[in-house]
Amino acid sequence: MANKRKIIQGITTFVYNFNLKGFFTGEIYTGKLKNACVPGLNCYSCPGAAGSCPIGALQSILGNYKYQFSFYIFGFLMLIGTILGRFVCGYLCPFGLFQELLYKIKSKKFKIKRVFVYTKYFILAIFVIALPLFHTNVIGLGDPAFCKYICPAGTIEAGIPLVLLNKPLQGIVGWLFGWKLFILIVFIIGSVFSFRPFCKLICPLGAIYSLFNKVSVFRYAFDEAKCINCNKCVETCKMDVIPHLNVNDIECIRCGECIEVCPTNALTQIVVLGDGKKNEEIN
Protein backbone atom coordinates (compact mmCIF):
# COMPACT_ATOMS: atom_id res chain seq x y z
CA MET A 1 0.00 0.00 0.00
CA ALA A 2 2.89 2.38 0.77
CA ASN A 3 4.25 2.05 -2.76
CA LYS A 4 0.79 2.46 -4.30
CA ARG A 5 0.35 5.60 -2.22
CA LYS A 6 3.68 7.02 -3.36
CA ILE A 7 2.66 6.44 -6.99
CA ILE A 8 -0.64 8.27 -6.44
CA GLN A 9 1.17 11.11 -4.66
CA GLY A 10 3.60 11.35 -7.60
CA ILE A 11 0.81 11.36 -10.19
CA THR A 12 -1.05 14.01 -8.16
CA THR A 13 2.04 16.22 -8.04
CA PHE A 14 2.38 15.95 -11.82
CA VAL A 15 -1.33 16.60 -12.48
CA TYR A 16 -1.31 19.68 -10.22
CA ASN A 17 1.80 20.96 -12.04
CA PHE A 18 1.43 19.84 -15.64
CA ASN A 19 2.53 23.21 -17.07
CA LEU A 20 6.09 21.89 -17.33
CA LYS A 21 7.26 24.53 -19.78
CA GLY A 22 6.85 27.09 -16.99
CA PHE A 23 9.87 25.59 -15.26
CA PHE A 24 11.96 26.58 -18.28
CA THR A 25 10.40 29.92 -19.19
CA GLY A 26 9.80 31.24 -15.66
CA GLU A 27 6.21 32.11 -16.58
CA ILE A 28 3.13 30.81 -14.81
CA TYR A 29 0.10 29.13 -16.39
CA THR A 30 -2.73 31.59 -17.07
CA GLY A 31 -5.43 29.28 -18.41
CA LYS A 32 -9.02 28.88 -17.23
CA LEU A 33 -8.23 25.88 -15.02
CA LYS A 34 -6.95 28.38 -12.48
CA ASN A 35 -10.56 29.31 -11.75
CA ALA A 36 -10.67 26.06 -9.78
CA CYS A 37 -8.73 24.90 -6.75
CA VAL A 38 -6.82 21.67 -6.34
CA PRO A 39 -7.55 19.73 -3.12
CA GLY A 40 -3.97 19.80 -1.78
CA LEU A 41 -1.50 22.54 -0.86
CA ASN A 42 0.09 23.61 -4.16
CA CYS A 43 1.13 27.21 -4.74
CA TYR A 44 -0.66 28.84 -7.68
CA SER A 45 2.47 30.84 -8.44
CA CYS A 46 4.44 27.66 -9.05
CA PRO A 47 5.51 27.82 -12.73
CA GLY A 48 3.95 24.40 -13.25
CA ALA A 49 0.69 24.95 -11.34
CA ALA A 50 -2.43 24.28 -13.37
CA GLY A 51 -4.92 25.09 -10.61
CA SER A 52 -5.28 27.34 -7.59
CA CYS A 53 -4.18 26.66 -4.03
CA PRO A 54 -7.28 26.58 -1.76
CA ILE A 55 -5.46 28.33 1.10
CA GLY A 56 -4.11 31.05 -1.19
CA ALA A 57 -7.53 31.42 -2.81
CA LEU A 58 -9.25 31.68 0.58
CA GLN A 59 -6.91 34.47 1.68
CA SER A 60 -7.31 36.33 -1.61
CA ILE A 61 -11.10 36.39 -1.24
CA LEU A 62 -11.08 37.26 2.47
CA GLY A 63 -8.54 39.97 1.72
CA ASN A 64 -10.69 41.48 -1.02
CA TYR A 65 -12.65 44.56 0.09
CA LYS A 66 -15.84 43.19 -1.56
CA TYR A 67 -16.08 40.03 0.57
CA GLN A 68 -16.06 39.16 4.26
CA PHE A 69 -16.59 35.43 3.71
CA SER A 70 -15.82 32.96 0.94
CA PHE A 71 -18.74 30.72 0.05
CA TYR A 72 -16.82 29.36 -2.93
CA ILE A 73 -13.71 28.21 -1.07
CA PHE A 74 -15.37 27.16 2.20
CA GLY A 75 -17.91 25.23 0.08
CA PHE A 76 -15.10 23.58 -1.86
CA LEU A 77 -13.23 22.65 1.33
CA MET A 78 -16.43 21.33 2.89
CA LEU A 79 -17.15 19.23 -0.19
CA ILE A 80 -13.67 17.71 -0.37
CA GLY A 81 -13.50 17.33 3.42
CA THR A 82 -16.87 15.60 3.66
CA ILE A 83 -15.96 13.14 0.93
CA LEU A 84 -12.28 12.50 1.68
CA GLY A 85 -11.28 14.09 5.01
CA ARG A 86 -7.50 13.99 5.46
CA PHE A 87 -7.16 11.36 2.74
CA VAL A 88 -6.14 14.46 0.76
CA CYS A 89 -3.11 14.87 3.06
CA GLY A 90 -2.07 11.25 2.64
CA TYR A 91 -2.57 10.93 -1.10
CA LEU A 92 -3.17 14.25 -2.82
CA CYS A 93 -0.65 16.72 -1.41
CA PRO A 94 2.71 17.40 -3.13
CA PHE A 95 4.23 19.03 -0.05
CA GLY A 96 3.27 15.97 2.00
CA LEU A 97 5.09 13.78 -0.53
CA PHE A 98 8.14 16.07 -0.36
CA GLN A 99 8.32 15.72 3.42
CA GLU A 100 7.84 11.95 3.28
CA LEU A 101 10.73 11.58 0.83
CA LEU A 102 12.95 13.59 3.18
CA TYR A 103 11.88 11.34 6.07
CA LYS A 104 13.34 8.38 4.18
CA ILE A 105 16.84 9.76 4.81
CA LYS A 106 18.39 7.54 7.46
CA SER A 107 18.66 9.36 10.80
CA LYS A 108 17.44 9.27 14.37
CA LYS A 109 13.67 9.93 14.32
CA PHE A 110 11.75 12.05 16.80
CA LYS A 111 8.06 12.23 17.66
CA ILE A 112 6.19 15.52 18.03
CA LYS A 113 4.19 15.84 21.24
CA ARG A 114 0.46 15.62 20.66
CA VAL A 115 -0.28 18.98 22.27
CA PHE A 116 1.63 20.81 19.51
CA VAL A 117 -0.62 19.52 16.70
CA TYR A 118 -3.20 22.10 17.75
CA THR A 119 -0.94 24.98 16.65
CA LYS A 120 -2.18 24.51 13.08
CA TYR A 121 -5.66 25.65 14.15
CA PHE A 122 -4.10 28.83 15.56
CA ILE A 123 -2.26 29.37 12.26
CA LEU A 124 -5.53 28.86 10.37
CA ALA A 125 -7.46 31.29 12.57
CA ILE A 126 -4.84 34.05 12.65
CA PHE A 127 -2.82 33.90 9.42
CA VAL A 128 -5.40 32.52 6.98
CA ILE A 129 -8.60 34.14 8.28
CA ALA A 130 -8.06 37.03 10.73
CA LEU A 131 -5.08 38.84 9.18
CA PRO A 132 -6.40 38.83 5.57
CA LEU A 133 -9.76 40.07 6.89
CA PHE A 134 -8.60 42.74 9.30
CA HIS A 135 -5.01 43.73 8.47
CA THR A 136 -5.80 45.80 5.40
CA ASN A 137 -4.01 48.50 3.46
CA VAL A 138 -5.35 51.95 2.54
CA ILE A 139 -7.52 50.59 -0.29
CA GLY A 140 -8.96 47.82 1.87
CA LEU A 141 -6.96 44.86 0.59
CA GLY A 142 -5.88 42.35 3.23
CA ASP A 143 -2.53 40.64 3.52
CA PRO A 144 -2.37 36.96 2.50
CA ALA A 145 -0.41 36.50 5.71
CA PHE A 146 0.05 32.74 5.59
CA CYS A 147 1.46 32.85 2.04
CA LYS A 148 3.54 35.91 2.81
CA TYR A 149 5.12 34.99 6.13
CA ILE A 150 4.92 31.21 6.51
CA CYS A 151 4.13 28.91 3.57
CA PRO A 152 7.26 26.86 2.75
CA ALA A 153 5.39 25.15 -0.10
CA GLY A 154 5.16 28.53 -1.84
CA THR A 155 8.88 29.10 -1.34
CA ILE A 156 10.00 25.81 -2.81
CA GLU A 157 7.36 25.54 -5.56
CA ALA A 158 7.21 29.19 -6.62
CA GLY A 159 9.70 31.45 -4.86
CA ILE A 160 12.91 29.61 -5.65
CA PRO A 161 12.14 28.65 -9.30
CA LEU A 162 10.69 32.07 -10.19
CA VAL A 163 13.56 33.99 -8.61
CA LEU A 164 16.10 31.72 -10.32
CA LEU A 165 14.38 32.11 -13.71
CA ASN A 166 13.57 35.85 -13.59
CA LYS A 167 16.38 38.39 -13.43
CA PRO A 168 14.03 41.30 -12.49
CA LEU A 169 12.83 39.34 -9.44
CA GLN A 170 16.41 38.65 -8.37
CA GLY A 171 16.91 42.38 -8.07
CA ILE A 172 14.07 42.88 -5.58
CA VAL A 173 14.42 39.97 -3.18
CA GLY A 174 14.83 41.14 0.39
CA TRP A 175 14.51 40.10 4.01
CA LEU A 176 11.12 38.45 3.43
CA PHE A 177 12.57 36.03 0.91
CA GLY A 178 15.36 35.26 3.38
CA TRP A 179 12.80 34.67 6.15
CA LYS A 180 10.75 32.32 3.97
CA LEU A 181 13.89 30.50 2.90
CA PHE A 182 14.76 30.07 6.59
CA ILE A 183 11.32 28.56 7.31
CA LEU A 184 11.69 26.21 4.34
CA ILE A 185 15.13 25.05 5.56
CA VAL A 186 13.73 24.48 9.07
CA PHE A 187 11.02 22.21 7.66
CA ILE A 188 13.40 20.43 5.29
CA ILE A 189 15.71 19.57 8.21
CA GLY A 190 12.73 18.85 10.45
CA SER A 191 11.28 16.42 7.90
CA VAL A 192 14.44 14.33 7.96
CA PHE A 193 14.09 13.80 11.71
CA SER A 194 10.31 13.81 12.18
CA PHE A 195 7.42 12.61 10.00
CA ARG A 196 5.64 15.44 8.16
CA PRO A 197 6.29 18.19 10.75
CA PHE A 198 4.66 20.88 8.60
CA CYS A 199 1.45 18.81 8.35
CA LYS A 200 1.39 18.14 12.08
CA LEU A 201 2.22 21.64 13.28
CA ILE A 202 1.40 24.27 10.68
CA CYS A 203 -0.76 23.23 7.72
CA PRO A 204 -4.06 25.16 7.76
CA LEU A 205 -5.45 22.99 4.97
CA GLY A 206 -4.88 19.85 7.03
CA ALA A 207 -6.48 21.66 9.97
CA ILE A 208 -9.64 22.25 7.92
CA TYR A 209 -9.82 18.71 6.51
CA SER A 210 -9.16 17.23 9.97
CA LEU A 211 -12.49 18.66 11.14
CA PHE A 212 -14.23 16.35 8.65
CA ASN A 213 -12.32 13.15 9.48
CA LYS A 214 -15.07 11.91 11.79
CA VAL A 215 -17.85 12.41 9.26
CA SER A 216 -16.14 11.86 5.91
CA VAL A 217 -17.60 9.45 3.37
CA PHE A 218 -14.24 7.70 3.01
CA ARG A 219 -13.07 6.67 6.47
CA TYR A 220 -11.76 3.87 8.64
CA ALA A 221 -13.70 1.47 10.83
CA PHE A 222 -12.54 -0.44 13.92
CA ASP A 223 -14.02 -3.77 14.99
CA GLU A 224 -13.34 -4.12 18.70
CA ALA A 225 -14.35 -7.79 18.67
CA LYS A 226 -11.50 -8.63 16.28
CA CYS A 227 -8.82 -6.61 18.09
CA ILE A 228 -6.23 -8.65 20.01
CA ASN A 229 -4.50 -5.56 21.50
CA CYS A 230 -1.19 -6.33 19.80
CA ASN A 231 -0.57 -2.58 19.43
CA LYS A 232 0.98 -3.02 15.97
CA CYS A 233 -1.27 -0.26 14.58
CA VAL A 234 -0.06 2.19 17.22
CA GLU A 235 3.60 1.29 16.66
CA THR A 236 3.35 1.71 12.88
CA CYS A 237 1.40 5.00 12.80
CA LYS A 238 3.75 7.85 11.93
CA MET A 239 1.06 10.43 12.62
CA ASP A 240 0.95 9.18 16.23
CA VAL A 241 -2.69 8.14 16.11
CA ILE A 242 -4.00 5.41 18.40
CA PRO A 243 -6.36 3.67 15.94
CA HIS A 244 -8.05 1.35 18.44
CA LEU A 245 -9.02 4.34 20.60
CA ASN A 246 -9.96 6.82 17.88
CA VAL A 247 -9.89 5.34 14.41
CA ASN A 248 -10.94 8.61 12.72
CA ASP A 249 -8.63 10.85 14.72
CA ILE A 250 -7.99 14.40 13.45
CA GLU A 251 -4.37 13.45 12.71
CA CYS A 252 -5.15 10.38 10.58
CA ILE A 253 -4.08 11.01 6.98
CA ARG A 254 -5.49 7.65 5.77
CA CYS A 255 -2.10 6.28 4.76
CA GLY A 256 -3.42 2.80 5.50
CA GLU A 257 -0.33 1.47 7.25
CA CYS A 258 -2.31 0.50 10.36
CA ILE A 259 -4.70 -1.54 8.21
CA GLU A 260 -1.78 -3.22 6.51
CA VAL A 261 -0.16 -4.40 9.76
CA CYS A 262 -3.35 -5.42 11.59
CA PRO A 263 -3.16 -9.23 11.84
CA THR A 264 -6.89 -9.72 12.46
CA ASN A 265 -8.41 -7.18 10.02
CA ALA A 266 -9.88 -5.25 12.93
CA LEU A 267 -9.19 -2.05 10.97
CA THR A 268 -10.81 -1.51 7.57
CA GLN A 269 -11.41 1.23 5.02
CA ILE A 270 -15.08 1.95 4.47
CA VAL A 271 -17.29 4.20 2.39
CA VAL A 272 -20.28 5.58 4.28
CA LEU A 273 -22.68 7.97 2.58
CA GLY A 274 -25.97 7.70 4.44
CA ASP A 275 -26.64 6.66 8.04
CA GLY A 276 -23.73 4.22 8.13
CA LYS A 277 -25.79 1.04 8.50
CA LYS A 278 -24.75 -0.23 5.09
CA ASN A 279 -20.98 0.25 5.19
CA GLU A 280 -19.13 -0.92 2.17
CA GLU A 281 -15.67 -2.34 2.86
CA ILE A 282 -13.21 -1.40 0.16
CA ASN A 283 -10.04 -3.17 1.17
Binding site: I28, C43, Y44, S45, G56, D143, P144, C147, K148, C151, G154, T155, A158, G159, L162, V163, L169, I172, V173, G174, L176, F177, W179, K180, L181
Partner: peptide, 8 residues
Protein backbone atom coordinates in the same frame (compact mmCIF):
# COMPACT_ATOMS: atom_id res chain seq x y z
CA UNK B 1 2.66 36.00 -9.96
CA UNK B 2 1.78 36.30 -6.28
CA UNK B 3 4.67 38.33 -4.89
CA UNK B 4 3.65 37.54 -1.31
CA UNK B 5 3.66 33.80 -2.04
CA UNK B 6 7.21 33.89 -3.37
CA UNK B 7 8.49 36.03 -0.52
CA UNK B 8 8.87 39.39 -2.23
Amino acid sequence: ICLECIGI
